[in-house]
Amino acid sequence: MTWRVACIITVGSEITRGLIQDTNSNWLASRLNSLGVTVKRIISVPDDKSEIAWALKSCLEVSDIIVVTGGLGFTADDITLEAAAEALGVKLVFSSEALEMIKSRVRGEVTYQVKAAYIPEGSKPLYNRTGVSPGVHLVLSSKHIFFLPGVPSEMRTIFEDHVKPLLASTTYYSRTLLVRTRYSTETEVYRLLEPLKYKYTWVYFKTHAKTPVEVVVVIQANSLIELEERTRSLISDLEKTILIESLEYT
């Protein structure tokens, strides 16, 4: 099974200065994982071209999906697309399709909002039905880069309307188990589970230091049949490896 790996980049000096809380990355990580996409990194950078460029290049090295939020507006510090174009070696070009999307969302004449119609060459604008600035989808060397507005409601709308259908075109299935053990120390459970982590590379284990210790297990598969088979196999090995008080599906 080939895993899809993603990085999330949130852009905004208001985030890195602690003026607002970044809720976008948490929501995106949850949605991506539900689609069978493993999130490798979450990075927050200020409205700075060099920082945005570094984040993009860094993420391109380790992932095939990148979701960037913030910096798509009309003010001077909205520089995400300009910085991305420079970093990725493409031109920032005018998109008549993006302009039509903007016109459909603006009452009266489009003036300063035209800035959002300039997108990286080769990319596609994504209609924003709850705001003005379109999202942008760029495919570069088989890697998918999505640029979404920083406003949470707009980001979520574009993700659900455009990003999710694309990522869901290859179906993945997942199941989460909550295992309550009979152990009082997390380190002991972690040590016992270590062989299973190497055996089941398609399973995510997370121990929680509660009394008794709990383990969250996420199983992923390409089909429902495969998911059932993997679940049965894993539970069988878990029962042989650790003392289990209870096990439930969440």
Rank of each mutant, 00 (worst) to 15 (best):
V218L: 02
V213Q: 06
E160N: 13
V215I: 15
Y183T: 03
E188L: 08
Q220W: 09
R180Y: 07
W202E: 08
R191Q: 07
R180G: 00
D161A: 12
Q220E: 15
T176M: 08
E194D: 07
S184K: 15
E214G: 00
R175K: 14
H162K: 05
K199A: 15
N222K: 14
T171H: 02
Q220C: 13
L193M: 03
L177D: 03
N222Q: 15
T181N: 09
S184Q: 13
V189R: 03
T187R: 13
Y198P: 02
K164W: 05
T201N: 15
T176K: 06
L166P: 01
V216K: 14
K164L: 13
T181G: 06
D161R: 12
Y200G: 06
S223Q: 12
H208F: 08
T171V: 06
F205G: 00
L196T: 04
L178S: 08
K210V: 09
Y173W: 12
V163N: 01
L193K: 04
H208T: 11
R191G: 01
T170G: 06
L196K: 04
V189Y: 01
H208D: 06
V163S: 04
V218K: 10
V179K: 03
L177N: 05
W202H: 13
H208N: 08
V203L: 04
Y172F: 13
T170H: 10
R182E: 09
V216T: 14
L196V: 03
A221F: 02
N222W: 11
P165Y: 10
L177M: 12
K164G: 04
L177I: 11
Y198G: 15
V215H: 09
V179D: 01
T211D: 06
T187K: 13
V217D: 00
